[in-house]
Design a protein around this nucleic acid. Sequence first.
DNA 1: GTCTATATGTAGATAGAC
DNA 2: GTCTATCTACATATAGAC
Lengths: 224, 224
Amino acid sequence: MTQKEAAKIDGRIVRGEATREKVLDAAERLFADVGFDGVSIRQIAQEAGVTLGMVGFHGGSKAELFDTIVERRVSVLSEERRKALAQLFAAPPDVPTLRDIMASYVHPYVGMASSGDPQWQAYTRLIAHLVSDERWYPRVKDHYDPVAREYLEAIVRIYPGIDRTRLASAFVMAVSSMLSIVASTVRISSLSDQRDRMALSELENVLIDFCSGGIASACHIVPQ
Amino acid sequence: MTQKEAAKIDGRIVRGEATREKVLDAAERLFADVGFDGVSIRQIAQEAGVTLGMVGFHGGSKAELFDTIVERRVSVLSEERRKALAQLFAAPPDVPTLRDIMASYVHPYVGMASSGDPQWQAYTRLIAHLVSDERWYPRVKDHYDPVAREYLEAIVRIYPGIDRTRLASAFVMAVSSMLSIVASTVRISSLSDQRDRMALSELENVLIDFCSGGIASACHIVPQ
DNA sequence: GTCTATATGTAGATAGAC
DNA sequence: GTCTATCTACATATAGAC
């Protein structure tokens, strides 16, 4: 019996899924605003429009709830990036530039943030909290590291003589600036009108120039 | 009557100052580890080795305590940066490079972090939390913005035709990467031995290359 | 699946003795 | 200046009725 058939038969299951999503979405928004410790489960319940018990039932403990929220976004983003990177190397005669590679890393993230989906916007703010959090950073790091390593190797393929230690450090710096600028831009634009969504798209080019130029400079490479 | 004379006459005043410092230092370390909401006043009291009432007496409310901790570092750092920037422009025939300017912004911060003072190390981790925090960021922003503006104007003086909007964005990106990389490096090295303190000094050059190269690239400038 | 009620602990802040 | 004791509110988590 498929899930869909089950949903047909028993209305409570679909209602349950809807409730679960309301809980996760509300928690994502609140965690994004004030971080893990700044939010109470009661606030999440109120934001989601459900009772306190429902948060525990669908989300488990507060920490489990947080983990769930992070994990459901990671795979989507990693998939986008892998596809973008593969596409760059798909046409053998054309060698992608460092800027191309960084653009393919940055663009999916900015794309999610500027898609208009308030949940993805919340997620970018949530992630920005995590990079300075000793408790959660190791976990998200494990999720994002595999793809980041693929990007480092792609850069090494183009610049075989590159200093790998410097490259790794510079890449972390680039990611930090991306997370921070997107989160703060989203934070500002989510308070105002449509016009500001353009700002993020324009900022994307500045960000990509900054990241690729910064890495090139840090690794003593002549971008070409 | 000077404070010192008062201290001589009444021993409680010096003891009180010492207690106050213990409270502020302990709070700084704990806020750095887990952020504002992750710490209880009781934990601060225990870390400082004082009673709960003492934290309230010397630190005021939790928010006031936090403000005090941030403010006592800002002036020191801003002073260092202003001195460094003025020195760059002190010898009129020599025009400082963009890299020189960014180095004079980054170096004081890295210097405090790598000085070995655990309180300055804690502060760098604390600041890293704030940039993604809606409640505190506006306040520290007000503290740091004046000096940042002086740096932007210094860069404009060297590159009069520069795109100021791009420059401002790129500068924020550079600062973000600095805050993040210093905090995470300090976090790692504070758990291990002296040898790792070298790492931050070496990383400083990579960071300065990254920031200046990134800004140059984002502003379509040819660094020279 | 959903709700109410509650068990159990901890939060920030302060009053009052010394 | 310092300590103890306590007020009031809110936290997480779950048991049990529906």
